[in-house]
Amino acid sequence: MTTDSERVEVLIDGTVLHVAANTSVAAAVLNHGGSASLPSRRSGWTPLCGMGVCWGCRLTIDGQANRRSCLIPVAAGMRIDTQPNGSEPEAP
């Protein structure tokens, strides 16, 4: 188990950041100044529920699209992309 003071290195949109271990990806992105949503022309994809219900926090994590970032803790070396790769996210 990790303690609060430990930090892990993650890549948010290509920028290297050191964030506290035990932070959710959604919180890490918000702390970094992002909105933890795909900033596309669609509005309202913001983290509303914080608990896996609304999917407003969907992000691409380690290349996997549509991950609910509020449910996923940061991990060393994790790649987090808040930008859509020029396409709409995959439908379920």
Binding site: A20, A26, A27, N31, S37, G44, T46, L48, G50, C54
Partner: peptide
Amino acid sequence: LLLPFPGWTLPGVHGVGGLQALVHSGLE
């Protein structure tokens, strides 16, 4: 229960429990 009102899709608007959950998971 989250109900629509004008502006509720703006970044910075969260559920009450949602904001708490985000803070618990490290939001400053």
